[in-house]
Write a protein that binds this DNA or RNA. Structure first.
Lengths: 121, 121
DNA sequence: TCCTGGCATAGATGATTGTCGATGCCCACC
DNA sequence: GGTGGGCATCGACAATCATCTATGCCAGGA
């Protein structure tokens, strides 16, 4: 049984707030800009982009920390730190099974982000 | 005649590099991650997001600095600084006409970014 | 030619961030 | 109950960043 734990914030909530306002259609408000900037800031790092890419492409769509530390050439605490940021932003989910912590992508996250940034139709 | 000036880097070049690699399809390389992170970092700021939104929604798709300083409540040098970052990232173009400098969105920029972030089809 | 106004640059400063080593927690297995 | 390993947290440090004030540059009008 999967005991999901340590939900630091409603997953993807501020994402929904930032979403659905086309960005290029009309001037966004200050708070909308702040929310969207928080989400983009979580992605605007080479290590975190590689984490997203590796987890998404991994078999089963999930991976544990021990599988991510090696290829990136960074220490385990650093990887854990980046993963925490991605979870807080609503991009990743964390599922602790036994000793291992499995991280997986929230599909709607990248979907919504892509929609906000795409030119208004 | 529009005398475009101060092209600090090939506009949108590193954007094309980062583009066309779906991110979620297969693990991206370190240099691809660095390029994409540079682009995202240029957008991951509330002020710059509002600038993008305001310019895109402005009539004619362009705006001069004097039209952007007021609504944001920041000083003119700060706005110029953010605009320079957006131009360097290939997101904005700069066109100096007489005393005024007009900034406009590079359409393909947000297009490409949105495509990279969208789930692989 | 001398102002005036729009914009860019320079230098400084406080805040945020990415990374590390050290350590603590918790689960599973002897 | 003790032990080992996977992972998170803590504290520190260097680097980057967003913002400001002061100043310089340049085009257009008096």
């Amino acid at each position: 049984m999967t005991t999901s734990a340590t939900a630091q914030s409603p997953p993807g909530l501020r994402l929904v707030d930032a979403c659905c306002t086309p960005l290029l259609r009309e001037p966004i408000t200050a708070s909308q800009a702040a929310d969207l900037a928080r989400l983009l800031k979580a992605l605007a790092d080479p290590t975190r982009l590689r984490l997203v890419s590796m987890v998404a492409a991994h078999e089963g769509g999930e991976a544990c920390v021990c599988e991510l530390t090696g290829p990136l050439g960074l220490t385990q605490p650093t990887i854990s730190h980046h993963l925490k940021i991605l979870v807080s932003a609503g991009i990743f989910t964390r599922d602790k099974r036994g000793v291992w912590a499995y991280y997986a992508l929230v599909p709607s996250a990248m979907d919504a982000l892509s929609a906000v940034l795409s030119p208004a139709r």
